[in-house]
């Protein structure tokens, strides 16, 4: 019953659904090139809405972290779109000797169980530990499971390049322009704050309860870890007493230290996802290290599905006021 779409030659092409959540915010560029290369018709879920999040809450087990709950909502949305397949990659590792997070490793299975009558879930595995050959085979198999020929699969893989690259999209297109032209009236007084949190949280206006927006409204220029050279982060990471085995968590920890040493940063806002395993330990360590570094003010907020925008706003305002006073 799926709406069959056809390419220029009139050949029908599969509609492939992809969730605009979690790994989308880390790796979409790669997957888009892969799917384009295959010639698939891509159906991307829209930015998270309140309804999608509440769907996700119903489907996920209670204690799941907020971003994964949102992901469930996206998957649910895709089931209503007559897609032929849902592509939910299994991200294991993008960097030597590290993992992303156990939940990324089990995500396709979780979605298969939870989402009612889904289209088949296709789950190519991205894991830097496996040989290049196996990595390639995993992407080839995924393509063949979706009915693409080996030839188009080879081309698509060629075109998409390294499956380990990441490009984080930390701000939604809605927030970006607001930040750029800085709709602030008094440019001089603007403060610069480092905002640290998982990219899929910060980039999502609903799960982050509009945090980026709120900051823009307060004349605060948010800076995220994407603006920091990877080498600098790696250098900090080498310096730690134990290697952090979560690549993304480690970067956040390193960024906290980095920003606390920078003169142009007025404060650090740490955004934790409730129920996040790595945040629960590394968040605390980051705060500790920032305090050890000296006087950079740090605010830690934990976001869950109940965090109302109002409460968050009050805390942000109080923090920004405090930082402003300190600055003057």
């Amino acid at each position: 019953m799926s709406a069959v779409s056809r390419n220029a030659d009139g050949v029908s092409v599969p509609r492939v659904g992809f969730c605009r959540a979690l790994l989308y915010h880390i790796q979409w560029d790669f997957w888009k090139e892969y799917l384009d290369g295959l010639g698939a018709e891509i159906v991307l879920s829209p930015p998270t809405s309140k309804e999608m999040l509440s769907d996700g809450l119903k489907l996920a087990v209670d204690d799941t972290c907020l971003p994964v709950k949102a992901f469930y909502g996206h998957a649910q949305w895709l089931t209503t779109e007559a897609v032929d397949f849902m592509l939910v990659p299994r991200l294991v590792s993008l960097e030597k000797h590290t993992y992303i997070c156990p939940k990324f490793m089990g995500l396709p299975d979780m979605i298969r169980t939870a989402v009612a009558g889904p289209p088949p879930v296709i789950d190519p595995k991205i894991d830097i530990r496996q040989s290049a050959l196996r990595q390639r085979a995993s992407l080839m198999n995924a393509a063949s499971d979706m009915g693409f020929s080996p030839r188009s699969a080879r081309e698509a893989i060629q075109q998409a390049g390294s499956p380990y690259r990441r490009k984080m999209r930390t701000m939604s297109s809605r927030v970006k322009p607001a930040l750029k032209c800085g709709h602030s009236s008094s440019k001089q007084s603007a403060m610069k704050m480092a905002v640290l949190g998982h990219p899929y949280l910060l980039a999502d206006d609903v799960t982050s309860a509009g945090l980026m927006w709120a900051l823009a409204d307060m004349d605060v220029k948010p800076v995220t870890l994407e603006s920091v050279d990877d080498e600098i982060l790696q250098e900090y990471l080498q310096d730690l007493p134990k290697k952090v085995f979560w690549s993304e968590g480690g970067r956040l920890l390193a960024a906290a230290r980095h920003f606390s040493r920078r003169d142009d940063i007025d404060g650090i806002i740490q955004v934790n996802a409730f129920g996040c395993g790595s945040d629960s330990l590394l968040g605390e360590e980051a705060q500790r290290r920032v305090r050890q570094e000296g006087s950079c003010p740090i605010l830690s907020v934990s976001l869950d599905e109940h965090s109302g925008e109002a409460g968050l706003l009050t805390r942000l305002e109080a923090f920004c006021d405090m930082v402003k006073r300190k600055k003057q």
């Binding site: 134990k242 979560w246 605390e284």
Partner: peptide, 17 residues
């Protein structure tokens, strides 16, 4: 100790602090 992916390998760092 441990090398991930769950938190166990990081316990001692947190506890030590």
């Amino acid at each position: 100790g441990g090398v991930g992916p769950c938190r166990f390998g990081y316990y001692f760092r947190t506890e030590q602090d």
